[in-house]
Design a protein around this nucleic acid. Sequence first.
RNA 1: GCCCCCGUAGCUCAGUGGAUAGAGCACCUGGUUGCGGACCAGGAGGUCAGAGGUUCAAAUCCUCUCGGGGGUACCA
Length: 555
Amino acid sequence: MTLRQELADLIRQGIVRAQQVGALPKFDVPPVDVTPTKPQFGDYSTNVALQLARVARMAPQRIAEAIQHHLPTNDVLSECSVATPGFINMRLNPIWVARQVAVIEAKGRDWTRSNVGQGQRVQVEFVSANPTGPLHFGGARNAVLGDTLARVLERVGYTVQREYYVNDAGSQMRKFGETLYARYAQALGEDVPVPPDGYMGTYMVEWGKRIAQEHGRRFLQMEREQAIRELTDAGLRIVLDEVQQDLTNLRVRFDNWFSERSLYEDGTFDRVLSLLREKGLVYEREGALWFAATQLGGEKDEVIVRSTGEPGYFASDIAYHYNKFVLRRFDWVIDVWAVDHQGHVPRMKIMMKALGLDPDRLTILLYNLVTLKRHGEEVKLSKRAGDIITLREVLEEVGPDPIRFMLLTRSNEAKIDFDLGLAVEQTQENPVYYVQYAHTRIAGILRKAREEGWTTWADGNLDLLTHPSEQALLKKILDLPDLLVTIADRLEPHHLTYYAQDLATHFHAFYRDCRVLDPDRPDLTKARLRLVAAVKLVLAHLLEDLLGMTAPEIM
RNA sequence: GCCCCCGUAGCUCAGUGGAUAGAGCACCUGGUUGCGGACCAGGAGGUCAGAGGUUCAAAUCCUCUCGGGGGUACCA
């Protein structure tokens, strides 16, 4: 149980006991919400008494007092008080707080685990950029969001699969293959023009050359259609290899790369189509095959197969989600999409209904766009040339740490200006180094401790950690497991970076107030070394395991 | 036109029913013969876009208005 869950349970028991002795009337006990509060009130508080006023037909203040009086004895709290108009405020027992250091020592990085997910199988599908070129920097936000979310969901007890959907079917792929064919032929001195709406990026020229070097004139000697097919596959391998490299460098990992084309090759699409046909949700008009979304409350019907005979993207979406829910049996699927795809959300929900699935099992997580800047000036993208600012360029310039941190400093729906200058500047405006510096500082203390001959401090007496700054630092740490629960619940990983800065601030304040290494007070020194080592462990866990960053020993 | 998101301190943004609305930066004033000053403390700064409503309680929920962004294809 997390701390907040434990406190909520105490309150719940208080309510039940008060009811048993008649201090409160009988009613169903609602879920109790315990939240951190301001130091002047205590450490945590709950408004449950205010919410119960109606059902209990009592003044909230009296309800709160009844709960307070019947709270079970425990060693977590040192004080529980009632404040007008009916808040119940709780203060943590300083001894209990201090002794949590031992719990952290024992559990290590597993200390933040909880089980609100109860092993439910959730798939996070993210990035899924068209495999027609290098990853655009904008895709980095999707990658960081999805990856961080997956990390947090795992921590709180979900069984998570991370998936990249490879759009290797459809017209974009066709254009990609035709473009590559032209660039390849050009590399061999042939005058084959790039199709008018082809991919103009210079990277296609390079890949054409690369394939020409590796395979010679082989593709020119075969029939054009066959050559395009084979070049498409060759190009796809190059793209996916590069994409995977970039994502690895960003410390983003996938469990599965799912091929869109496979949905057509293994019969999934045909199966779903006949399923919808049986339900009378498919009809033909003007040479195209339509999905009758309006029958299920949609704004308008959607095309499944175009009059050209090619399935549209919606066809793939239906088959793909049928695969996710029916064939692979995920309990919950989160698709991470840029906000410019928002128009698809309603039709995805209707598609769920059409498949006989609860629409709530599909979450479309939308995030806003990223604008790239350099010292306040927007970095223009020259779209005409087809050249884009790639993730790779930014990775090479600033490294993964600032990218990951900065892209989590805004809520999902807020736009982000990513400033290339600021990202590597070691100034007050850059929070990345501020957080990492806290970790480095602790590493420095521990180095110094060994230099000064402190060899072991496992027997340090934790009960000595009573200084307000020590307590404040510990309490900040103790809230992390609950923060992860909140993030998983609201799908808002940006809270992690705010927490990280807050934790660093608490450490720096402690550092100012409490000298760790003091030869005149060996007992206190040992206790503080235990504290500081525990903080280091949690900070490293936060930076490395949750934020996917580095936790440097020196900077 | 219709749909979605946003509007909070000078700037960039947290805060999705609770107590006196917060942080970073910028600005002002202070702090180290001591573990890394890439740090810390204090000050100043608000009609939470506006107007109604719901509620014991609204930045938060509902309605309308204004302003900004996005979406409204047989493209993804």
